[in-house]
Structures are given as structure tokens and as C-alpha cells.
């Protein structure tokens, strides 16, 4: 105990002496600058190493994973075909109250911004729900944007859905720019995400 105390006192005094001395401090700072800038240059990112926009993964900065799903009703949609448009991918189920709560805002924003190149995809987690429930839900809320049926749960898995609703905002190049887990999203938030994405040229 006493020994440790003396030792620490010694270290303290030596440390303070180094910090106090202008010459030693100048030396330390020059060393830090040299080593630091050397390390910065050595660890400079090789071209493309951090531009993750080409790897498909469900997070901002990455390519939105591709999928093709049947529409509620008839026909199908392939995400790849929607390049050039801003895409909102909303994962939902009929039994999820916050999903229900945010649908009117999604519908209004879709109606309003459709002309500027926005498309909303309501991806129904059919594997955890039923097509009949999906249909009743869409009728009741009067949704006009495309609703897709994820029967096998593949899209849920691709997009690592762990909570509903989860909403992805994809830019015109197919890169995810924003992910919101949970809800309900309000109209202002939706618009604040979409404004900059829609402003990017086609």
C-alpha cells in the first residue's frame, strides 16, 4: 500500500514534469503529428473499400436487396425494375397496431409525391398473417399503393425484419438511405426523408 503510493507519487511527478516542460511537450507534439499523419496516410481507404453501396444489405449506405413478389390482386413487382424512382419499402402485418397507425400517412404522401417519382411498396408479412387479412386491411384503409405478399417470408429475412413496422427509404440508385424500425411514422418525418431523395436527379 505504502509502496504503491510512493510509486504513484513518483509517476505523477515525472508525468507533470514532462507536461510542464515546453521542450519535451514540443517534442511529444511533433512526434504525435508525425506518427499520426503517417498512420492516417497508411490507413487511407483504398478506393471503394467503404463505398458499401454495391453490397446488398438492409442498412443505410447499402444496396437494397432485390426481390420479386406477387401483388395483392394480380401481377408481380421486381424491385430492380424500380431503379430511377424513390422507393419506400414498408414491412407490415394486419395484426400490428403501429403499422395500421402509419398507413394513412404513407397513403397521403404516396398520393402527393407519386408524380415526382415516388413509389411506396407495402410488403405484407404473409408468412405471419394471411392474404385475406391483408385484403381486408387494404380495403378498410383505402390504400392505393402496391401491396406485395411475402408468402415465404423471404423478404422479411432478406431485410432482417425483427420488429414491425420497419420502413426502408431507397434512393433512385437503389441504395438504402434511411431505415426506421418501429412506428408509427408521421407525415412530416416521411416527407423530411423523401424531400432530399426526390430532389436528386433521375
Amino acid at each position: 500500500m505504502f509502496y504503491e503510493f510512493v510509486l504513484e507519487l513518483g509517476i505523477t511527478n515525472r508525468l507533470v514534469a514532462w507536461i510542464e516542460s515546453p521542450r519535451r511537450m514540443t517534442l511529444i507534439i511533433v512526434l504525435v503529428l508525425l506518427l499520426g499523419s503517417g498512420w492516417i496516410v497508411a490507413s487511407a481507404a483504398p478506393l471503394g473499400s467503404t463505398t458499401a453501396g454495391l453490397i446488398p444489405s438492409p442498412r443505410p449506405g447499402f444496396l437494397a436487396p432485390d426481390f420479386e413478389l406477387d401483388l395483392l390482386g394480380s401481377g408481380s413487382i421486381n424491385l430492380l425494375d424500380l431503379r430511377g424512382q424513390v422507393v419506400v419499402i414498408n414491412l407490415w402485418a394486419s395484426w400490428c397496431p403501429p403499422c395500421r397507425a402509419e398507413m394513412p400517412a404513407l397513403q397521403r404522401v404516396y398520393e402527393d409525391l407519386q408524380g415526382e417519382g415516388l413509389i411506396v411498396l407495402g410488403v405484407h408479412m404473409t408468412a405471419q398473417d394471411s392474404p385475406a387479412n391483408a385484403n381486408a386491411f387494404v380495403q378498410e384503409l383505402g390504400l392505393s399503393f402496391p401491396v406485395l405478399l411475402d408468402r415465404s417470408g423471404l423478404v422479411g429475412k432478406l431485410y432482417q425484419s425483427r420488429a414491425l413496422p420497419t420502413t426502408f427509404f431507397v434512393d433512385r440508385d437503389g441504395v438504402i438511405q434511411e431505415v426506421v424500425v418501429g412506428g408509427p411514422l408521421n407525415e412530416v418525418t416521411l416527407r423530411s426523408y423523401l424531400q432530399p431523395l426526390l430532389a436528386e436527379s433521375k
Binding site: 507536461i19 511537450m25 507534439i29 504525435v32 499520426g36 492516417i40 487511407a44 481507404a45 483504398p46
Partner: peptide, 20 residues
């Protein structure tokens, strides 16, 4: 190709040494 956080860190490091 430089990482912004590293440049900021180096400035902060030198500044904190000076402040010390």
C-alpha cells in the same frame, strides 16, 4: 481517400496535449 474522423482526432489530440 482520407478518413475525416482521423484528421479530427489528430487535431483534438494535439489540442488536448497543448491544453494539458
Amino acid at each position: 481517400s482520407l478518413r475525416a474522423a482521423q484528421l479530427v482526432s489528430l487535431v483534438v489530440l494535439v489540442a488536448s496535449l497543448l491544453i494539458l
